[in-house]
């Protein structure tokens, strides 16, 4: 290959359109069907577990309309514990949205950040970074609630 040829070919070497098409054709795609089925099954199992816990609290004498809060707290506790034991990320790899969408995902993101930044101190580490991933959920949750609240007041 002579040097002149290279100069001429420099643009050909990495052709953007060709690269775009290559990506479309050869980039590995997420296994969509598998992910959806797993999310459905795992998400369903989380809800089933929640239902058992709820029934348990009712059986212990908590009024049915108030049993929701301790149930959520228990599920959060379990997810946080599994995160601490280093199990949650392995489960989430298979469960995907089934674990991310319920309150388990929220608990995991808070706990994971708290553990990760513990070494930078309790205040400026865990305390400051804890809601780094979960923060947006709270922010946009509140904004959504506010907007819906106004709409419902107007109607």
């Amino acid at each position: 290959m002579a040097t002149e040829e290279v100069r001429k070919n420099k643009d050909v070497l990495i052709d953007r359109n060709w690269l775009k098409n290559w990506h479309k054709a050869k980039q590995p795609k997420p296994p969509l069907a598998r992910n959806i089925i797993m999310a459905f099954l795992v998400g369903g199992l989380v809800c089933l577990l929640g239902q058992f816990i709820l029934n348990g609290y009712i059986a212990l004498g908590v009024p049915a309309e108030e049993a929701g809060n301790p149930t959520v707290a228990t599920v959060i506790f379990i997810a946080a514990l599994l995160t601490g034991f280093g199990v949650f990320d392995n489960l989430a790899r298979h469960g995907g949205a089934g674990l991310a969408v319920p309150v388990t995902g929220f608990a995991n993101s808070v706990t994971a950040m708290a553990i990760e930044f513990r070494r930078e101190g309790l205040v400026l580490g865990s305390g400051a970074k804890m809601f780094g991933l979960a923060g947006p959920i709270i922010v946009f949750g509140v904004i959504t609630a506010f907007v819906i609240g106004i709409i419902s007041a107007l109607i």
């Binding site: 280093g86 989430a92 790899r93 991310a100 995991n108 990760e116």
Partner: peptide, 12 residues
């Protein structure tokens, strides 16, 4: 992400 955060990584 933090090491214990549960997420699904793309195949690439």
């Amino acid at each position: 992400f933090p090491t214990e955060y549960g997420s699904q990584r793309p195949g690439y």
